[in-house]
Design a protein around this nucleic acid. Structure first.
Lengths: 174, 174
DNA sequence: CAGGGTTGTAATCGGCTGATAACCATCCGG
DNA sequence: CCGGATGGTTATCAGCCGATTACAACCCTG
C-alpha cells in the first residue's frame, strides 16, 4: 500500500477516534490499531499527533462543505437553505463528522486549533450565505440550529425519542 | 480553613482549568496550584479527578439555571424568554461557565458525563419552557441560539467584531 | 542481481499525571 | 496535658502515551 493510501486510512481511523474521545483522550496507538498498522508509523507519516488531528478536522469540514454545495445544487426551485438543513440532518446519522466538529470547538483553547476552526467556519458561513441567498438572520439561525444538532448528536438524544418530550421537541427540527 | 471552604475554592479553580483545557488536558496539579494547595489534597477531598469535574459541571449548570430563574422573575410584563436570553448573554462575558458546558458536551463520549449532562439539560429545558410559557418552537430556537453562543465564546469571536462580517452577524443576536 | 528508495516494525525512552502512603501540625474538649 | 479529630504536606509510585531510533522486508530499475 502506498503512503498516500495509508494516510487516507489513518485519517479514517483518526476521525473515529478523535470524534469519540477528543484530542487529548484519543491515542495514536488506537488510531494505528484501527488502521491496521503500528503506532510509530502514524507518527512518521504525519509528524505528530496534532497533525493527524488537523487532517481529520480538515476532512470533516470539507465533507460538510461538500454536502452543502451538493444540496444547494440539487435544490432546484426549492429553498436552498432548507435543502442544506436536510443535508446536515443526513450527515448527523453517522454522528462521526459532527462529533469531530464539536471536539474541535472544545479544543479551541489551543490557539492553533482555534485558528483553523475560525478560518473554516468563516469560509463555511460565507459559502452558506452565498449559496442560499438568505438574510443574515436566517443564516444565523441556520448555524444556531446546526450547533444544537451537534449537541443532540453528542448526547445521542435521538435514541431518547419517545422518551422525555424535550428530546422530541429538539429533534423535530429536522 | 474548613474542608467545606476548601472544596468551594477547589471548584472555583477547577471551573477555570476545565473550561479552558477540557477534562483530559486539565491537570489536578494545576487546579491545586490555582487553589493554593497541594495536588494530593485535591484528590483526597474529592476522591478522583472525575469527581472534581462533576462538581464543577454541577456548579456551571446551577449558575445558568439560577440566572434564568432570576431573569424570568425580573422580567415583569416583558417577554420572559427575551429576558433569559439577555441573562445568558451576560453570563457569556466571563466565558468560563459556557466553556465548561461546551467541554461537558465534548466529554459526552464518557457515559457518566453523558448521563449527567442529559439530566441537567432535561431539567433546564423543562424549566425554561415553564418559566417562559413559550411555544416548543421558540424554546428550541432559544436553546439553539445558546449553543451557537457557546461556540462563539469558545472561538472568542467577539474580539473579531469589526473584523470579518460573519462574526458580527452571529454576535448581533444579543 | 546489485542497490537504493519505499514501506513498515520492534524496542525503548522520557515526561507527565492521577493516585496512594506515610507523616506532620494545629486545635480543642476532658 | 493528653489524645483524637481535622487540615494539610512530601515523597513516591505506576501506568500511559507520544516520539525517536534502529533495523528489516520489499520492490522496482538499471
Amino acid at each position: 500500500m502506498t503512503a498516500g493510501e495509508r494516510r487516507v486510512a489513518i485519517v479514517d481511523a483518526a476521525l473515529q477516534e478523535f470524534s469519540e474521545h477528543g484530542f487529548e483522550k484519543a491515542t495514536t496507538d488506537a488510531v494505528a490499531r484501527r488502521a491496521g498498522i503500528s503506532q510509530p508509523y502514524v507518527i512518521r507519516l504525519f509528524g505528530s499527533k496534532r497533525a493527524v488531528f488537523e487532517a481529520a478536522l480538515d476532512r470533516a469540514f470539507t465533507a460538510v462543505e461538500t454536502a452543502f454545495s451538493d444540496a444547494a445544487a440539487a435544490a432546484g426551485g426549492g429553498d436552498p437553505l432548507r435543502a442544506m438543513g436536510a443535508a446536515y440532518g443526513r450527515l448527523l446519522e453517522d454522528r462521526v463528522l459532527l462529533m469531530m466538529l464539536l471536539q474541535a470547538f472544545a479544543a479551541s483553547g489551543d490557539d492553533r486549533v482555534k485558528a483553523v476552526v475560525r478560518e473554516r467556519m468563516s469560509r463555511m458561513h460565507a459559502r452558506v450565505a452565498e449559496l442560499s441567498g438568505a438574510t443574515p438572520d436566517r443564516v444565523r439561525e441556520f448555524f444556531a440550529m446546526g450547533m444544537l444538532l451537534n449537541v443532540v448528536a453528542a448526547l445521542e438524544l435521538p435514541e431518547l425519542l419517545g422518551g422525555p418530550d424535550w428530546a422530541d421537541r429538539m429533534c423535530e427540527a429536522l
